[in-house]
Write a protein that binds this DNA or RNA. Sequence first.
DNA 1: CTCTTATTGATAATGATTATCAATAATATT
DNA 2: AATATTATTGATAATCATTATCAATAAGAG
Lengths: 127, 127
Amino acid sequence: MNQRNTKQKEIILKILDENRIHPTMQEIYDLAKKEDQNIGQATVYRNINKLVEDGMVIKIPSVGEEGYHYDINNHPHTHLVCNSCGKIIDIFENDYEKFIKKIASNNSVIIKKSLLVLEGICNNCKK
Amino acid sequence: MNQRNTKQKEIILKILDENRIHPTMQEIYDLAKKEDQNIGQATVYRNINKLVEDGMVIKIPSVGEEGYHYDINNHPHTHLVCNSCGKIIDIFENDYEKFIKKIASNNSVIIKKSLLVLEGICNNCKK
DNA sequence: CTCTTATTGATAATGATTATCAATAATATT
DNA sequence: AATATTATTGATAATCATTATCAATAAGAG
């Protein structure tokens, strides 16, 4: 016996999968409470941390502010923190992986993980 | 009167300038203590935070672990956290700014700041 | 159905960061 | 040079997010 599937774990995964709003730990907890009134905060922390460890979830630091946001690690992509609306926007840049590989080869290093966070103004707010 | 130059501020700036080891807040405090036995930890926090706000210092989140490291924001560059020796290596990639500009234009967004943190194996440890 | 133990919920503990505030010292003004 | 103003400091308390603890629960193997 190594891993067990619990109701709580399923709820948390479902929240991450259905709410692509890059929620904070607190927001995930609040959403989880709506599904299960009795879920504990520590349970949310434990599960999210394990998902990050296992590489299934990305932990996004804010460029300016404190704190972290979380996102499902589906396709490699980056995030833009919008200074105007405050949202975190997914940026799918085709050449991202290519660029990372280029850095690795140019600098003779091995890159296992990468994190690119942008800060500025999103498409919507620019208009 | 807006800003004042203090002995403490100078010590902290000198530490950041001379020690390109990407120290943590604690490490900066320890180094500062060697220069001035009476410097307070809160003073280090206050000064570093202001330098980050003013854009003179970069706050680098660890990809895997918790906590932050700090670095003078001289030329735009990125950082590689080495999983072998634990050091943070500066990576000066010529096309970095070009790549960021490309993302901005491809996605119709304005990018004011960016943060790229890499995790893997550095040049030295690879050998 | 029973047993093992991973996981949970509640709560205490931790630890890093921030707020508070009187004392100090930088610098503008006299 | 002396004084006044107030930004900054150092010490400490307060805060807050995260983690550790632990008995109770429940997932899943046998």
